[in-house]
Write a protein that binds this DNA or RNA. Structure first.
Lengths: 201, 201, 201, 201
DNA sequence: CATGAATGAGTGTTCATTCAT
DNA sequence: GATGAATGAACACTCATTCAT
C-alpha cells in the first residue's frame, strides 16, 4: 500500500508538472491559473494542492526537475576522456533537443524562469545554480582542452565557458521567436568555432 | 499651444516610461501595478491612462523605445568602413553599458520582454524585429568582413551573426544573475574570438 | 453482533467528540477542519462521516452531551433538602471544575457555542434549553429558600436565578481570558453573597 | 481637500463598520463574507480594502471602537463622588442599552468577540483589556464604597468587581437568547443586591 | 488636465463532503 | 468498515480600468 501510494504520488506529481509546463509554455506563469493546470491535467483545482503547496511551488518544482536533468548531462559529459568531445556532446544535449515537442516546451518555460528569477529569490537561486554548475564544468573542460592543445592557451577558460553558455542561451531564445532557425547549422557553426580556437588550426 | 502640449506629452510619456522601467525591473511586469508606476512617477493612477491606453501599451512603448535606440546603434555601425570595427563597436554598444544604472534596468526589462514575447503577439513582433534587424546587419557585416579577409570564408554569415547575437543575449542573462561577471574580460574574449576566426590571424 | 456494533459505535462517537472538543477548543469551530478532527482522533476524514452526517452534527452532539451532563447535576441538586445547599452544590458543579483539563476545554467550547447559537437555530435551541432548565431549577430553589427564610422574600426568584446563572457564565468567560482568576475566591464570594441576601444574616 | 478626504475617510470607515456589525450580528464572523459587508454598505468588495487591510482588521476595528466607547463610560463614572451611584450608572451603561437596535447588534457582535478571542491573539488582547479596565475601575469603586460604609468590608473588592462584571456579561448572553428577558427587573435586582451587601442594610 | 475613490471580474487557496478501492 | 484521494463551490483579496469631481 505505501508502495502504491508512493508510485501514485510520483505519477501525479509528474502529471501535474507536465500539465503545468504545457500551460506555462502557452500562456506564461502569470496568465496560467491553477484551474488551467488542473484542467490540463484532468484534475480538479483542489487536487493540485495535495501535491504542491502553492502555484509557486509548482514553478519551483519544474525548475528543480530541469536542473536535475541538466546535471545528469554534465555528469555524463565529464566521463568523456576527450574534452572537446565532451564540449560538443554538451552542446548537443543543451541545444540538440530544441526541436522535439517536450523539449521545446521545456525551453519556453526555461525562458520564463529567467524572468521569474529576477523577482523570485528561490527561482533565482535555482537558475543561478543552473548556470554556475555548467559554467564550472565548462571551465574545467576548456582548461583540459587547452592542456591537450585543443584550444588556444591564451583564452581565459572562465570567459570561454561563459561564451559557450551564452551561445546556448542565445540560441534557445532565437529558436523561441523563430522556430525556423536551423539547429544543425548552428551546431555546425559551434563546432567550426571550436576548431577555429584550437591551436592546430 | 499644440507645441507646448506636445512637449508636455512627450515629457510625461518619458516620465512614465522611466518609472515603469524602474518598477518592472524591480518586480516584473505582473507584480507591478499601475499604482506602483504612478507612485514611482509621482502621478495618480488615472493620469497614466491619459498617456497610455493600458498597462500592455506601457510595456509595448518600452519595447518600441528600446528598439528605436538599438536601431540607431546599428545605423551608426553600418557607417563604419571597417566591418570588424563595426562588429566590435556594436559589441560595445550592446554589452558595454551593462554596468551603468539605467542600462542595467533596461536589460532586466529586456529579459522580461523575452518572456512576454512568448505570450503577447505584439511584443513578440517587436522582440523579433529587435533580433532580426541586428541579425541582418551582422550578416552583412560578416559577409563584408569575409570579403576583406577578416573572417574565414568557410563560416556561414547567418550562423556567425546568430552566434554573435547569442553571445550578447547570453551575457545579458549571466550579468543579470551574477553582477560580478566581468564585462571587460567578456568583451576581450569576444575580440579574441573574432581574431581567431579571421583567416589572416 | 448488534451489541458489539453498538458499543463500537458509542466508543467511536465518544472518541470523535473528544477529538473534536480538543480541536475546537484550540482553534474554534470554523478554523477546525474535519481533517484536523480526524487526525486528532487517529481516524481518516471519511470515517468521521460514518458516525456523524456533517461537521455541524458533531458540534451539535457536543452540545447535547454537555447538556445531558448538566441536567444530571440539576437532578442531583434537586434531591437536596436544603435549598441553599443545593444552590451551592450547583455553583460548585458549574464553576468548580473550571481548572481541570477536560472541563477547561469543555468550557472553551461552551463559549464557542454561545456564538454559534446566534446563527445556528439548532444550537440556539440547545443553548437556550441549557439556560432555561437551570433557570427554572434555580427559580424553584430560590423560592424554596425564601420559604425557609434563607433568602430575603423581597427578591424576585426569576431575577435571582438569572443573576446566579450570570455569575457562572461571566466567570467562565473571565477564566477563559485570564487563567489566573481565582476560582476558590470567586466561589467564596458567591457564598458570601448568598449569606448577604438571606434575611437571617 | 485633505479635510474633505479625511471626513470622507472617517465616514466610510463608520459606514463599513456599521454594515459589518449588521452582517456579523446576523451571520457570525465566519459566515459573513466581504461581499456581504460590501453589499450591506452599498459598496463594492474592492472598496472595503481601501479602508481596511483585511477582514480581520474590520473585526478588530469593531472591537477597538467598542472598547473606546466603554472606556468613556468608565471615565464618566469615575467622576461621580458617590461610588454606589457610579456603580449603578455603569450598570445602566453596560446593560441599559440592550434593548435599543444598534446596541443589541453591538452586543451580539460582542459575544462573537468572546469566541474569537479564544483563537485570535489580537482580539484576545482587546477583549482582555475590555474586561481588565472595568475590573480595575470596579475594584476601586468597591473599595471606595467600603470606605464609605456602602458595601460590607468583609467582601474582597476584586471578587465583587468580578461578580459585577459577570452579572453584566451573563445578562448580555441571556438577552441574546431570550429577548424577553426583562432588563428593568434585572437592573432592579442588581440594585437590590447592592443594597443587600451594604453594611447599613 | 489631474485625481483617486470606486468598481468588479478574476485568482490562489481552502475544506466539507463523497466514493472507489 | 475504513481509507484518503478527489471534488468543486466558496472565499478573501487584488488590480486594471473608469469616471465624477
Amino acid at each position: 500500500m505505501p508502495k502504491v501510494s508512493e508510485a501514485h504520488l510520483a505519477s501525479r506529481h509528474a502529471q501535474i508538472l507536465r500539465a503545468a509546463i504545457a500551460c506555462f509554455a502557452r500562456n506564461g506563469f502569470h496568465r496560467t491559473t491553477i484551474n488551467d493546470i488542473a484542467a490540463e491535467a484532468g484534475l480538479s483545482p483542489g487536487a493540485i494542492y495535495k501535491y504542491f503547496a502553492s502555484k509557486d511551488e509548482v514553478i519551483e518544482a519544474i525548475s528543480v526537475e530541469r536542473h536535475r536533468r541538466e546535471r545528469e548531462w554534465l555528469k555524463e559529459a565529464t566521463k568523456a576522456t576527450n574534452p572537446r568531445g565532451a564540449i560538443l556532446a554538451l552542446a548537443h544535449s543543451f541545444i540538440g533537443g530544441l526541436s522535439e515537442g517536450d523539449t521545446a516546451l521545456d525551453r519556453r518555460v526555461g525562458i520564463l524562469m529567467w524572468s521569474e528569477a529576477l523577482r523570485n529569490p528561490r527561482i533565482r537561486r535555482l537558475v543561478r545554480e543552473g548556470v554556475d554548475e555548467p559554467l564550472s564544468v565548462f571551465r574545467d573542460l576548456v582548461a583540459d582542452a587547452q592542456q591537450q592543445g585543443q584550444i588556444g592557451r591564451d583564452f581565459d577558460p572562465e570567459v570561454v565557458a561563459r561564451m559557450m553558455i551564452a551561445l546556448f542561451q542565445g540560441f534557445v531564445l532565437q529558436r523561441a521567436w523563430d522556430p525556423q532557425a536551423d539547429i544543425e547549422q548552428y551546431l555546425n557553426g559551434v563546432e567550426q568555432l571550436l576548431r577555429a580556437v584550437s591551436e592546430t588550426q
